[in-house]
């Protein structure tokens, strides 16, 4: 079994009556890229703040690198690099000076500043004031700050926020490379497609509760596309398919089926048309994140 580097037990945060994080058990192993997924306001940032000791849990424990965060906060933080929410920057300082500030506070070798500038491709603008930076550049500066100490665990909260497509691609490639050097990454996002492209492990949080935590493959299976069939008479078509032991789900004017292979689609079409139901649409639909949320939270029946 791989080494558990981050483990929370029943992690809970309550503000007055509102519970923003509710009994979460996070598990991250060494070398994993853990995608922490959930809509805005689901509790991702609150969880991350607790992991960094910025706020205290109402209940539950956090263990990182096998140590209790409550007791060994400083030793643990020594090995963590983080970017929480919007990136931090001192606008009156240049990019290089911003990094230099953190370098001094962490007591790191001087050459690291140039190294991380190179990694996030900010070398050219390193001597410009950060208040003149674009959002994407600030974001990259934030990632550079997080990577400065060459941490064992990198915690990135929405790192691709505000980046253009090529910037997102760049950051994604960068993150994917990190485990090769033994780094583990916790990266949060509200976009499934993004997590899908870089994570090895996924945790989905909704309304403060962890509703899914497993490998990305297991999630992909849940994302299998569906066949959406538009017919003139939904009820009749459903009956016909039922007779043939084909499981369909009628929602509004559309029938939903769980297979999308070409042969299957043609067969459905042929069956319905021959039974006198006119088919005006055959569409392959990939489930959206919302669909999966609905499915996982079980609030609405789906296939």
């Amino acid at each position: 079994m791989n080494e558990q580097i981050l483990m929370t037990n029943d992690l809970t945060k309550k503000y007055m009556k509102h519970t923003s994080v509710d009994g979460i058990n996070l598990r991250i192993e060494r070398g994993q890229i853990y995608g922490f997924l959930g809509p805005n306001g689901a509790g991702k940032t609150t969880t991350i703040r607790m992991l960094l000791g910025l706020i205290k849990p109402t209940q539950g424990t956090i263990k990182i690198f096998g140590q209790s965060l409550k007791k060994n906060r400083l030793q643990i933080l020594q090995r963590i690099g983080s970017l929480v929410e919007s990136p931090t920057y001192y606008g009156n300082l240049t990019g290089r000076e911003n990094l230099e500030a953190v370098r001094r506070l962490r007591d790191l070798p001087e050459k690291r500043v140039n190294e991380v500038l190179e990694i996030v491709r900010l070398t050219k603008v390193a001597n410009r004031l950060t208040k003149e930076y674009s959002l994407g550049m600030k974001q990259r500066l934030g990632i550079a700050v997080a990577m400065l100490s060459n941490p064992d665990l990198l915690i990135l909260d929405e790192p691709t926020n505000g980046l253009d497509p090529s910037g997102i691609q760049e950051i994604r490639e960068l993150i994917k490379e990190l485990p090769k050097a033994g780094m583990s990454v916790l990266v949060s996002s509200h976009m499934l497609s993004e997590i899908d492209q870089m994570a090895t492990q996924v945790g989905i949080i909704n309304n403060g509760k962890m509703i899914f935590q497993d490998s990305i493959e297991r999630l992909r299976q849940k994302r299998k596309p569906l066949l959406k069939v538009g017919v003139s008479d939904g009820m009749k078509a459903n009956e016909i398919l039922k007779e043939r032991k084909l499981k369909a789900n009628l929602q509004g004017d559309f029938l939903w089926l769980s297979q999308t292979e070409p042969a299957f689609v043609s067969e459905i079409n042929s069956i319905l048309v021959h039974a006198g139901v006119s088919v005006y649409r055959l569409e392959e639909v990939t489930k959206t994140l919302e669909d999966i949320f609905l499915e996982l939270t079980g609030t609405e029946g789906s296939l």
């Binding site: 703040r49 960094l52 000791g53 910025l54 400083l74 030793q75 933080l77 020594q78 963590i80 983080s82 929480v84 929410e85 919007s86 990136p87 931090t88 920057y89 001192y90 953190v102 506070l105 962490r106 700050v145």
Partner: peptide, 10 residues
């Protein structure tokens, strides 16, 4: 947003 960065340092 410096507080969170500063306080998440060791």
């Amino acid at each position: 947003g410096g507080w969170k960065q500063l306080l998440a340092l060791p």
